[in-house]
């Protein structure tokens, strides 16, 4: 088991003789346990225990939830559900922003393509940049440094 330097430098371990016995017994117990948890009986018993726990705790959980909502209401504070609802709305907003980001990316890409097309005849005296060969690629500004692009990154402010 030990991958490191061992041999004669290894200190005396009084537990060493028991290690083989331990491993053998663990293996034996492991096999029995794997068979046990693979049985229908285990599935049924664990399901029944979980069901009983949840059934028993539900009234308390609901009562606690109701009283918490009531207390928060009295304190003019938003409930958990209200905060969750607000978070969901923020996510929707983020998605709209992402849609706009996608459209802007498309516009910039089209612009770059148009500019490249327009520039190529004018630059005829100079040798044109070679087309990206296999293994190479064209990248937007900032990409090489791992930057998301010229327009910055929404998520970076988080």
């Amino acid at each position: 088991m030990n991958d490191g330097p061992g041999g004669s430098a290894k200190p005396f371990d009084p537990f060493e003789p028991y290690r083989g016995m331990r491993d053998a017994s663990l293996d034996a117990v492991a096999r029995v346990m794997v068979d046990a948890v693979n049985s229908e009986g285990y599935a049924q018993a664990s399901g029944a225990m979980l069901d009983a726990c949840l059934t028993a705790s539900t009234p308390f959980r609901e009562a606690l939830g109701r009283s918490m909502v009531h207390a928060l209401e009295q304190l003019s504070l938003p409930s958990r559900q209200e905060v969750a609802s607000l978070a969901a709305r923020f996510t929707n907003l983020e998605m709209r922003l992402d849609d706009m980001d996608a459209k802007l990316d498309a516009v910039f890409a089209a612009q770059q393509k148009a500019a490249a097309t327009a520039a190529s005849p004018a630059e005829a005296p100079n040798p044109a940049p070679p087309a990206p060969a296999a293994g190479k690629r064209t990248r937007p500004a900032g990409a090489e440094a791992g930057l998301p692009g010229k327009r910055g990154m929404r998520g970076s402010k988080r």
Binding site: M95, P148, G155
Partner: peptide
């Protein structure tokens, strides 16, 4: 080393900073 390039809700997209020159990288 990596940089976050996109985020939405809890999801994050990271780009790992390349260590191989651009010309030698896989496309």
């Amino acid at each position: 080393p990596r940089q976050m390039v996109w985020a939405l809700n809890k999801a994050r997209l990271f780009r790992y900073i390349p260590v191989v020159p651009a010309g030698q990288r896989h496309r």
